[in-house]
Design a protein around this nucleic acid. Structure first.
Lengths: 247, 247
DNA sequence: CGTGATATTGATTCCACTCAATATGAGTGG
DNA sequence: CCACTCATATTGAGTGGAATCAATATCACG
């Protein structure tokens, strides 16, 4: 967690002490748990310590759109902070651990720590950038490129936060989930995976994904990880972050 | 401007005084002016006092994606605040007036006014919601629905800020612009307008748009203006409802 | 009155959808 | 241990919405 904040701003000792006190004790959650639904009243940010989850909205006809896929280190629920309402459903893809940061504490943070405020803004910005990038991919790319891009994004984000071996990772999404994220039919997701597999670009067995040659897949996807950039780098670089145990 | 902030939070006298001092003198800009390009260094928020503009990114193949269409009262450049870099191009669609709010002043605002900080966060959230809504529309809707939705959104935003007669408004976007915003071909935008016009849902002559029966168009579009909601409407007392996992 | 930007219309192609059937495999209980 | 079930994935056939290519049409403006 603290590591994640550190990626977004320069923290001093006071900030670190502040962070350590923030939020509730993490609690365990299970795959399939629904943290909240669209329209629910919102009272806190949710910090993901472990596990995967997604946020989604539903159209009138019942089809589902996955908006974001979130992993360890991500923070969820920015939207409710200013509206008091959840704008989308949040569902666990795997078991995990989460804690809550009441909005009141966030507001206190605004008052007490401009640096932390900036860090929260940076996270919000980064997530906006991810959605904007998805928009571009969905608007103009083929099915192959969509899927390739999605996989590259997952891989890159995992590499930056958790530790993923270069040799593959668990992607706990069904083909239907991926279809709902990318605006495709599940059938076509299957066909596309088959096609990518035949060309040796990916391997997918159950939920284990291997990307033999990431550079090649990124080229196909037109993937440039620039947009995942956390924040300005010159400030971050001279940050001798104290090694604080991560929850 | 102040009215716009007011939509996002409760301001007291001090805040209003603060706002009045903020930012540079507005300057005039012309249709076609490029305020910045993707990758440019960023040093300030941009406040739109009058005029239309869009932000866009380009894919490798040169195709353009319009990310946002911005009108009087909107604020631009949140992304650069935390990255120091512009994430997209910003181009004027019409003549207009804009002023700048240096990032340093924004950071000062973070330190001095939690309320204003929250208001900025709310604006950022609202814009994220617009992009997310666009994502959903692009993922799952037909061309007719995409265009109908886009028009409903423009109309609603115009009604909320500027004063637009119910009898129509100027939409200063070419069909190519609309195509680039919605991930369609310009040809198909034309066909779709023709189709919508034949059914009496819209009229478009040059850049003047008339929506004879907004409710009907909104029904076709599946448009629910909820997502354009600025922020909590003072109704929200504190209901600290803990999000309990549901199986 | 030409010129360039914008828009319309026709013909054709193709990517991805739908419907439908089948396969694969994990988990469960008799 | 096998049979059953349910979730997930694959494959085939046929369709259709939107893209592309290409040829005008319209109109504002100098």
């Amino acid at each position: 967690m603290i590591k994640r904040f550190g990626a977004h701003c320069t923290l001093d000792q006071g900030d670190v002490a502040l962070l350590a006190r923030l939020g509730s004790e993490p609690r365990q959650v299970r795959a399939g748990d629904i943290l909240w639904r669209e329209g629910d009243p919102a009272a806190s940010l949710l910090i993901v310590h472990a596990g995967w989850l997604y946020s989604a909205k539903y159209l009138q006809d019942g089809t589902r759109q996955l908006l974001e896929v979130l992993i360890s280190g991500d923070i969820l629920g920015f939207y409710g902070l200013t509206t008091g309402i959840r704008c989308s459903e949040a569902v666990l893809l795997t078991d995990g651990w989460v804690s809550e940061l009441p909005y009141q504490e966030v507001l206190d943070l605004f008052a007490s720590s401009p640096r932390m405020t900036t860090a929260l803004f940076a996270m919000s910005n980064q997530r906006r950038a991810i959605i904007a990038e998805r928009l571009m991919v969905m608007a103009r790319r083929t099915a192959r490129e969509k899927i390739a891009h999605f996989l590259c994004e997952c891989r890159t984000r995992l590499l930056e936060t958790a530790q993923v071996s270069e040799e593959g990772f668990i992607l706990p999404l069904t083909q239907q989930d991926i279809a709902d994220a990318l605006g495709m039919s599940a059938v076509h997701v299957s066909r596309t995976f088959t096609s990518l597999t035949e060309e040796g670009l990916v391997q997918r067995k159950h939920f284990r994904l291997v990307i033999p040659n990431p550079a090649k897949l990124e080229e196909l996807a037109g993937f440039d990880k620039q947009y995942l950039l956390a924040s300005r780098k010159e400030t971050a670089s001279h940050t001798p972050l104290p090694a604080i145990p991560v929850k």
